[in-house]
Design a protein around this nucleic acid. Structure first.
Length: 579
DNA sequence: GCCGTTTTCGGCCCGACTGTTTTCAGTCG
């Protein structure tokens, strides 16, 4: 059982306990454990091989949950979870996804009306049966029907790229409303999380907040207003994306930004820390607990300073040890997009790119890069018009000629000869060694046969690494955030072997990929496996995606030294020498 | 169920909005 599945079970246990009306702090323990497990770089499967001893010292995991992890990694089941499902029908978990319906209401619907799933809830609301319950009326039914409609129109979480665009447009609109002095997207967007549940926007204003709220609700792309208050409102966009806005006075802006950026787990830990110091943190500021006197709040720096910490970059705020690291002066030196000196995954119109080699090179030069690797597909990827041996040789010749031309013109820019060679189902590479040996930078990647077993897929990729012919493993898990699960692969084994063979792992910056993800990157850093941040550009504008890659790397605590393409060309070329 | 400058019991972040009810519980972030 993998970490993601174990985390899912803990989330479900938390939901089921809540519907049962169990101790809310016990519920929180399971929810917290789920988050901790999700953020764990190493797999519990591996850690549990040493028994309970291997699972000690994971914050938030105590004896009870440790036992359940052991059980799940050994048997693939959790008896406690199975037992809960006998008491509470699984369909009720779906009801909890309906906005405005939580565990208490779901329990009432189940006990009083025998409702066990969303369809049943919809029927009951339409038949006006909910209003027969105490505490529910006509409006409750309306809200629930609307929320069910919204739920169905949402395609789960939005990818970061799309969410950024929606948020940017909304932000521009809000800034033009009179009285708004500042406006910034917060939430998981500001933390550059790879998928976004909703957009959170914080606005500071010097006049009546009500005017801002009017403007907010009047945004042309709004489908309907979900809730509307003095300082806080929620709307649903036509695209099925929810947007929350919070309006706050300038003197509280830092505290509000800190609060609204999250993550929830980070905030709880920070507020807990404040409490132990005799302080209280809310979105309005930091206050002395006894006297209620205002202590800080205008900037985020002030808020963190008030609890004895340096400012913590948003990407790190997941309660994954950043507060302890901040306290001990161990926060990573954050990578900057300016540190990136070149792109090592670029396609041209020889395969499925939109632009020529020359056009892509111009684009890279314009960004201030020192180098770029042309890495078109190999023939197995027919749909991308992959190159055969003959075409690769022709491309090599063209690149040599192009580099000569650049040199003559005095340009300090080099195009590396590369390929994105397919790792076939049997682990062999899709170009002969004679071709690979002529290239500067060989990427290898899986493009088909995703449904293999974990052991087969791992072996397939290990064979590619052991060929000694590749430099970089591209998009190592193959996930597409909104449409395809990662294939099953033992990433720890892949990383160990990659380190042995001097193969780097790619962080693909495409917002739908972001592959490796943040926790894998943390593992790579721990294991000392070098990472390359690339865009997989198929057109000029794709170069911009490097921003998503860099911020994802920051989420994985990667520093400049951990990333190969922060090195100057000469140093890079030495590192790309294959064994 | 977790955790300890409040250490093995007794706490556990904090506030806005909604609907239905007259003072608040439930939900959300």
């Amino acid at each position: 059982m993998e970490n993601s599945e174990i985390a899912r079970i803990f989330h479900e246990i938390a939901d089921l306990l809540e519907v049962k009306g169990d101790n809310p702090f016990r519920v929180r323990s399971y929810r917290n454990a789920a988050l901790v497990v999700e953020g764990l770089p190493e797999s519990l499967r591996t850690m549990a091989q040493k028994g309970a001893e291997g699972l000690m010292h994971i914050p938030g995991i105590g004896e009870g949950i440790r036992e359940k992890i052991l059980e799940m990694t050994r048997t693939g089941r959790c008896a406690f979870h199975d037992g809960l499902l006998k008491e509470v029908p699984q369909g009720i978990l779906g009801i909890l996804k309906v906005s405005g319906v939580g565990p208490r209401k779901a329990a009432v619907f189940f006990k009083e009306l025998g409702i066990t799933d969303v369809e049943g809830l919809e029927k009951a609301a339409k038949a006006q049966r909910l209003r027969t319950l105490t505490g529910f009326g006509e409006k409750s039914e309306e809200r629930i029907l609307k929320a069910i409609k919204d739920l169905r129109s949402m395609s789960g979480r939005a990818n970061l790229g799309a969410a950024m665009q929606y948020a940017g447009a909304f932000q521009d609109y809000l800034k033009k409303i009179p009285g708004v002095t500042d406006c910034i997207p917060a939430g998981s967007l500001r933390r550059w999380k790879d998928s976004i549940g909703d957009i959170d926007i914080l606005a500071a204003c010097d006049e009546k907040a009500a005017a801002v709220m009017d403007g907010f609700a009047a945004y042309p792309d709004v489908r309907h207003v979900v809730s509307r208050g003095e300082t806080k409102s929620t709307v649903m966009l036509n695209a099925g994306l929810q947007v929350d806005i919070r309006v706050i006075e300038k003197k509280s802006f830092g505290a509000a930004l800190q609060y609204f950026t999250g993550s929830k787990a980070h905030n709880i830990a920070l507020r807990d820390r404040a409490k132990r110091m005799g302080l209280k943190i809310s979105e309005y500021g930091v206050f002395k607990e006894k006297s209620g006197a205002w202590a800080a709040g205008e900037t985020e720096e002030d808020v963190y300073r008030s609890v004895g910490l340096p400012w913590i970059p948003p990407e790190l705020r997941e309660n994954r040890g950043e507060i302890e690291a901040a306290e001990e002066g161990r926060l990573p030196e954050m990578l900057d997009v300016k540190d990136i000196r070149g792109d090592l995954h670029v396609h041209t119109n020889e395969s499925d790119g939109a632009c020529s080699l020359e056009e892509m090179a111009d684009g890279a030069i314009e960004r201030g890069y020192a180098y770029m690797a042309v890495t078109d597909h190999s023939k197995a990827v027919g749909i991308a018009h992959g190159l055969d041996e003959k075409r690769v040789l022709a491309q090599i010749k063209r690149i040599d000629e192009f580099n000569e031309k650049l040199k003559k013109r005095g340009r300090k820019f080099t195009v590396l000869k590369g390929a994105e060679v397919d790792i076939r189902a049997d682990g062999s590479l899709d170009h002969p060694d004679s071709v690979l040996d002529k290239l500067d930078c060989v990427l290898a990647a899986v493009h088909s046969g995703f449904s293999m077993s974990m052991s087969d897929m791992t072996e397939r990729i290990l064979k590619g690494i052991r060929s000694g012919k590749i430099n970089i493993l591209a998009h190592p898990t193959g996930r597409l955030i909104s449409s395809r699960e990662p294939y099953a692969v033992d990433m720890e084994k892949v990383m160990d072997e990659a380190r042995k063979y001097g193969v780097a792992l790619e962080l693909n910056s495409y917002p739908d990929r972001l592959d490796l993800n943040d926790t894998h990157l943390a593992l790579a850093r721990e294991k000392g496996v070098p990472v390359v941040i690339s865009t997989d550009a198929h057109s000029l504008r794709h170069f911009d995606n490097i921003l998503y890659g860099v911020h994802t790397a920051r989420r994985g605590w990667l520093e400049k030294k951990d990333v190969l393409n922060t090195r100057p060309l000469k140093e890079l070329m030495k590192l790309l020498k294959r064994k």
